[in-house]
Design a protein around this nucleic acid. Structure first.
Lengths: 225, 225
DNA sequence: TAAAGCAAAATTGCATACAATTTCGATTTA
DNA sequence: TAAATCGAAATTGTATGCAATTTTGCTTTA
């Protein structure tokens, strides 16, 4: 897979090299990737349209940051969208996807036992991605992944933070429960469990930020006159 | 509000000057807006990230086109998202919004009677926009408007087509029914009516395309080796 | 000591130039 | 006549340069 410049730049944000509030300096980015500013600027604008970074005319683009309210609303919206995917997947999953889902949960069991956070993050992406595909609706999948993308700089933190070790088992159990409902074809239950899963993730994230001395809400740049 | 170049370019697509499948030639667009290719390219990339145009490496970008299946899936997804907004709005609307909604429906009554299609299109945007705001969730509003944006090149056609005159009254009645449910605080009913409203719009659109000799599904460019 | 002012440095926005690739049409060939 | 071929024109991708604006840090001042 030929990583485009846009993808490479996005990875800087998604993998946490650049954190919410950080500036995207065109010159240094161009130097880092060995290209001129022109393609860098185009990539930055694309990330801006995706909502990953904030474009500020005549000033450096910065990684998008959410305050408490925005973060809460983002998770609420994502909960509904993911619930929709889960409900559809429960009805539309095919045999290959059922097998894949079972294998995923089994692998997740192992990863959780080993407390491998990096693998757990990847597993989380795969689990939700499988449900997005299973919903059999291209637009719904697009919407779900765009939404997930926007808050990734925050949700990924859940898996890298030390204090989360104790809770690592809960997301796995929730995934397993959702999978069970999906495999049973119970769309209402799958949706309800998914909503609850996302709501729990928000609570964990908020707790994390409270403990680490208020990360969100801080980078809110003051307006200019 | 100073229309950015990106907005001006988007309007070309949204208002139908450029139709699905049309190429976006950088040189002629630069000439049209009196700027160089550089800012044009940046704007095109942004529209690409928004899903309005399709970026094809080394080849001209084209206005995104949907085949029958994609159009159907897009409307299904939008139906759910709009239903979500309507349900939330039914519970969270404030007094100012209630007044605005009533005024909107009244004005729509008039516009429908006069068969003013342009005004009807604008009214449609305002109606849905009001519900997006009323849901009191920034991310949900963003998702809803991004989704609407992607299919605007198609849905806007509903209001400009001649044969739609006969049906112009139905969207208005549906809006009125939805508004009634929202004002009554009946979120389940508002959601159900909204889903039905969007489903009807899809059917009208499909009928329109069938009559005008298959517009969608045609522009599907053949893949390159 | 802290705030205000100011000039130099850094940074963004845009135009232009050129290389790489694709597109298009004329010509040739079966 | 239709398909294939080849070359010129058109088009995209990227680098570079310069003007406009913002940022930064030093100096001045209350």
């Amino acid at each position: 897979m030929p990583h485009t410049l846009r993808q490479k730049l996005a990875d800087l944000v998604l993998l946490g090299t650049l954190k919410p509030g950080d500036r995207l300096d065109e010159h240094s980015l161009a130097e880092r990737f060995g290209v001129s500013r022109t393609p860098i600027r185009e990539a930055i604008r694309q990330l801006g349209a995706s909502g990953l970074v904030e474009i500020r005319p005549r000033r450096s683009a910065v990684v998008r940051s959410f305050d408490r309210t925005e973060l809460s609303e983002a998770f609420e919206a994502m909960g509904e969208i993911e619930a929709l995917c889960a409900a559809r997947a429960a009805v539309r999953f095919n045999e290959a996807e059922r097998l894949r889902l079972r294998a995923l949960i089994a692998a997740s069991e192992d990863i959780t036992a080993r407390k491998d956070r990096a693998a757990a993050l990847e597993m989380d992406f795969e689990f939700h991605g499988l449900l997005h595909d299973g919903a059999r609706n291209w637009m719904l999948k697009t919407v779900a992944e765009e939404t997930r993308l926007k808050i990734t700089p925050y949700s990924a933190a859940l898996f890298t933070m030390e204090s989360y070790d104790a809770d690592l088992g809960r997301p796995h159990c929730q995934h397993a429960d959702i999978a069970e409902a999906v495999l049973a074809g119970d769309s209402d239950r799958a949706a309800a469990l998914m909503r609850e899963h996302i709501a729990q993730a928000l609570i964990s994230l908020q707790k994390f930020f409270d403990e680490t001395a208020a990360r969100p809400d801080a980078p809110k740049e003051k307006g200019r006159t």
